[in-house]
Design a protein around this nucleic acid. Structure first.
Lengths: 213, 213
DNA sequence: TCAAAGTGACATTGTTTCTTGTCAACTTGT
DNA sequence: ACAAGTTGACAAGAAACAATGTCACTTTGA
């Protein structure tokens, strides 16, 4: 009988689980960087590994394939961004709905500006990479829409926006405003960008004018 | 001296130029189909050739590489779509600005519905494929924005919209409305989709509310 | 009918990337 | 110090695909 191997031996101060988790984090951070610099399509597994200071062996220990890393990176970036948005919304609950949305949009665009590298990639470039990635993206857009609607109309606490078509239009507009802003090098101040996006949100105010048919 | 080869010999009733042009068209039509079915990323040169009923040899006679075909396909789809939009705008010049825009949006969404395959691909999936492709996409969005603004405010005939940030937001919204609509299988009637998009366009009506700072 | 132009099926080359494997060097607990 | 666990550098197989080339067959004009 060979003695059972030590199941949880420490290495450089950490257990196996801790080291695995840290490597996973390293890959995600490196991926955000590399995707931002070269775009997801041009980013190879090796380039991410190099940026992470790890080798391919650990990559395939951490993720089944490169798409899984993309999804994990997207989640990380989106969660971080939404955290800031939610915090801004919570911090401004003394103001009326639209001022709260303005604060949230400001936090959103500031978050994008703070980390320019991943912004473009995770806003649009990943569309069509895979069905699962598309679903992730759609979910994050829906979440943003729900957040905005609930801030404006706290009464109804719904899972989905009341007019999904319109809400997706608004959220899509918010994103394209960001893209235009980023593409021109962040020249306009954040306050102006947020104000522009807020104008889009104001369409939620009015019922659609009835068409005289 | 060898006799000069016949420079413009006919084959199956067409000259060399005509045949080349027809093959090019075949590739473009096939590409729109294949991109729509499998997505651009998953579409190989061979798959497009098979769909076109031609071989790789003619592909590389017609296009320097597969990105060139993508751009040509995008132009074809976009031109066709915009033609319908412009026609709808011209046909309704008796109505007021917003009704004309409604007619144009209706034509836009009807065009997307008429050919579902390419719609999704050419709306967003191609983002980030290459710098040149991105420029094409940006240009088409700007053109749509200019067209809308000029319909609403025929006075100023400008190359670029007066508030590019807002205009990109509106156009981005129009596109995301289409994406949501398509993603749900075109269940809502075109009139409703166009009406929703028109609500977005109405933000151009109002000056932004001044912020009390 | 014949030679040359044109065509289509298929082969080939070269590159790139994913993915797994090998092995020497390093770290740890004893 | 030592054996086992751990790591990083690198090799290498496998697959996919772009891009070019080959060749037999068809069509054309004379």
């Amino acid at each position: 009988m060979t003695p059972a191997p030590a199941p949880d031996r420490r290495y450089k101060g950490s257990t196996a689980d801790e080291r695995r988790a840290r490597r996973r984090e390293q890959f995600i951070m490196a991926a955000v960087e590399v995707y931002g610099e070269r775009g997801y399509r041009q980013a190879t597994v090796k380039s991410v590994c190099d940026a992470a200071g790890l080798t391919e062996r650990y990559f395939y220990e951490s993720f089944p394939n490169s798409e899984a890393l993309l999804i994990a990176s997207f989640r990380a970036v989106t969660d971080h961004l939404f955290e800031g948005v939610a915090r801004a919304g919570a911090a401004s609950d003394h103001a009326d709905g639209y001022e709260r949305v303005r604060a949230m949009l400001t936090a959103y665009y500031e978050g994008l500006k703070r980390s320019p590298a991943p912004a473009r990639v995770f806003l649009v470039e990943i569309s069509g990479v895979s069905a699962e990635m598309d679903r992730e993206l759609q979910n994050s857009l829906r979440d943003l829409g729900v957040l905005i609607e609930q801030t404006l109309y706290p009464g109804k606490a719904a899972e989905r926006p009341s007019d999904e078509l319109l809400m997706m239009g608004i959220v899509g507009g918010i994103i394209h405003i960001a893209l235009q802003w980023i593409g021109q090098g962040y020249v306009r101040p954040v306050s102006e960008v947020a104000a522009t996006a807020l104008r889009l949100c104001r369409v939620l105010e009015h019922e659609p004018r009835l068409r005289i048919a």
